[in-house]
Write a protein that binds this DNA or RNA. Structure first.
Lengths: 193, 193
DNA sequence: ACCTGAACACCGTTCAAGT
DNA sequence: ACCTGAACACCGTTCAAGT
């Protein structure tokens, strides 16, 4: 919508060119290392892989959560755009269920990032940063409610919590994906008007 | 049912009296410390509070998870007994939904124990130890399905996963309990025939 | 058979010195 | 303004010595 910065940022953007480059490198390294070793991976390993000193990592991201939060920001914009796409191309209830289903898959992909990432998805820790995604989802839900296909006494927070809950609970199940499918179907049955 | 040992035990029971006493003391201390400080509490603090050396803690419980698992064993027996009570005193669908609701509350209480405890509740890590609870729940579900009040294409694993998922996702929500209530109601709607 | 705690290793975090 | 890495602190884990 706006022509200004599209990425909300909790931390101030670095000023100097080398600092900005380090910022990016740290995020890339974090993605790689968290992906390989899980959310408790040594921060030193991330700094090493980014080719900077550990002190630099701390300067850019004062906590482990700050680093994970920053990684999450891109996802938000992607989700918002996707919701608008679906809104234009699919029926109200299909758009909503497809979008929710994709959020479930995203949650599974964030698996490695643990509780912090899940909380971000639920818009609790960083409400203003996460707002675009939340509002895009709320619009899809409202559309489905207006045509009477989804019950009116449910809000987008309910649905996102259920989606994240399904993602968390089926995470390390023996047959996680199939189980997640069944639970998601159950959820949709409960939500339909 | 059986008159033999009622507590399934992954570790061999200690032989000597002092060792058994230490075993109990460690469990008591673990409950206290985990309750106060969360699942990442220093194991040394638990040993200290139990009045034993850190080496003794490791001898009894070789991993943090082993300690949490042992704490969980009591809960299993409680859940089984409760299911039998409800089976005798409530209508099929009431018994099932009350039991599930209580499992949700238990999950919230296990909050402090993190992912390990949740997995135990889902009977994945220690299937044979968790079986009594699982089977008791399955019996309640079957009863409700026989009278046609709950859809037949759902099993107890689905329901326990949803319950745990709701517990996890509403854990640190601003208004966790109220949100959990709504999600639980949504789940029941999806499950009813 | 069981207990103890010192010893070692690893990682998080800070901060003085540098560019 | 930003970077570096040595230094410190904390905690997990093992194991030789003890009862």
């Amino acid at each position: 919508m706006a022509t200004s910065t599209t990425t909300p940022d909790a931390l101030p953007r670095p000023q100097r060119a080398d600092a900005r480059r380090n910022h990016e490198r740290l995020l890339d390294a974090a993605r790689a290392v968290f992906g390989e070793q899980g959310p408790d991976a040594p921060l030193e390993e991330i700094a090493r892989r980014a080719g900077v000193g550990i002190g630099t990592l701390y300067r850019h991201f004062p906590t482990r959560d700050a680093l994970i939060t920053a990684m999450f920001f891109e996802r938000i914009e992607k989700s918002r755009v996707r919701a608008e796409e679906l809104s234009a191309t699919a029926s109200p209830v299909d758009a909503l269920s497809t979008w929710l289903r994709e959020q479930l898959d995203e949650a599974a992909a964030l698996r490695g990032l643990g509780a912090t990432a899940m909380n971000l998805m639920l818009c609790e820790a960083e409400p203003q940063a996460c707002a675009p995604m939340r509002e895009a989802g709320a619009a899809l839900l409202a559309r489905a409610q207006v045509v009477g296909q989804v019950r009116g006494d449910t809000d987008i927070d309910d649905l996102l919590h259920l989606v994240v809950g399904i993602g968390l609970a089926t995470d390390d199940a023996t047959d996680g994906p199939a189980l997640a499918d069944r639970l998601f179907a159950l959820m949709l049955d409960g939500v339909r008007a």
